[in-house]
């Protein structure tokens, strides 16, 4: 029907990296929940695609207190992880979509998709990705600064220290197909420090440093929640107005921190 793009099916991470990074750059096909419909509807041109389904990049493992999740791990598997990642993954799409969509695809999707960037930012997660210059590691912000999702780049996995406690709250309509307008993730690390991140408070996921500082200084949840707006850069879109985002951010920060037991 649509383009006759060839699809290669690497059987290892190394083969996948080679296939994605060689010129001319290929399009990465992971779960396909975004790419396939765009391709069907003629919204993207695909010359060559690399499917990750046989590259054994979907593992989830825990060692020395660190969790490593392969970029091709389906969201259905991620729902079994502790908060904030598990409940965030559970909050995305319906059962059929969760069975197919991957954590890597989610991280690489533009807002208002990409919900998992919030929890991963709060966790201080380390991403590993490859491009023609080699393999790189860095946080969510570093990944974005490197250009984020782009031709010739393959996200490999994401790793984070298992937190002492985590929480996740989201603002959206009840239906599974509704996009999340805003989410707040909170994490208490082994040192007791609380980190907080939000999606929907700014055009992309952001840390809420001011709220964290209030808590670190012994302030109350209410004071931390009130301080959260200073890190926001609220915007209008079809899901919510900037004014509404400003208004509800402290409410959701408060709920996330109460759930955390901060």
């Amino acid at each position: 029907m649509t383009s006759t793009a060839a699809v290669s099916m690497p059987s290892s991470e190394a083969e996948a990296v080679a296939a994605v990074t060689e010129q001319p750059f290929a399009t990465v096909l992971a779960g396909g929940t975004l790419l396939v419909p765009q391709h069907t509807l003629g919204q993207v041109a695909v010359e060559r695609a690399v499917w990750l389904g046989r590259a054994e990049m979907d593992g989830i493992s825990r060692s020395n207190g660190r969790m490593t999740v392969g970029a091709a791990a389906p969201l259905a598997a991620c729902t079994r992880l502790d908060a904030p990642v598990g409940p965030c993954a559970a909050n995305i799409g319906d059962n059929e979509v969760k069975a197919q969509a991957t954590i890597g695809g989610n991280i690489c999707s533009p807002a208002p998709y990409g919900d998992l960037r919030g929890p991963l930012l709060a966790l201080g997660a380390v991403l590993r990705w490859a491009d023609p210059d080699g393999t790189h590691t860095g946080g969510i912000a570093d990944f974005a600064a490197s250009g984020g999702a782009r031709p010739g780049m393959l996200l490999l996995d994401v790793a984070f220290a298992v937190p002492e406690a985590g929480s996740f709250v989201a603002l959206r309509r009840h239906h599974t197909q509704s996009l999340t307008a805003m989410s707040v993730s909170a994490v208490r690390g082994a040192d007791g420090a609380v980190t907080i991140a939000a999606t929907g408070a700014a055009p992309d996921a952001c840390r809420l440093h001011a709220a964290e500082a209030v808590l670190a200084g012994g302030g109350s949840i209410a004071d931390a929640a009130a301080a959260s707006v200073s890190d926001a850069d609220p915007y209008d879109d079809a899901l919510a107005s900037a004014a509404y985002r400003s208004r509800v951010l402290p409410v959701y920060v408060g709920r996330a921190l109460e759930q955390l037991g901060a």
């Binding site: 096909l29 396909g32 059962n95």
Partner: peptide
């Protein structure tokens, strides 16, 4: 045996 959205599923997969 598993329910799938056929519109999201590429043939090669």
């Amino acid at each position: 045996g598993q329910p799938r959205r056929s519109c999201l599923t590429a043939l090669c997969t």
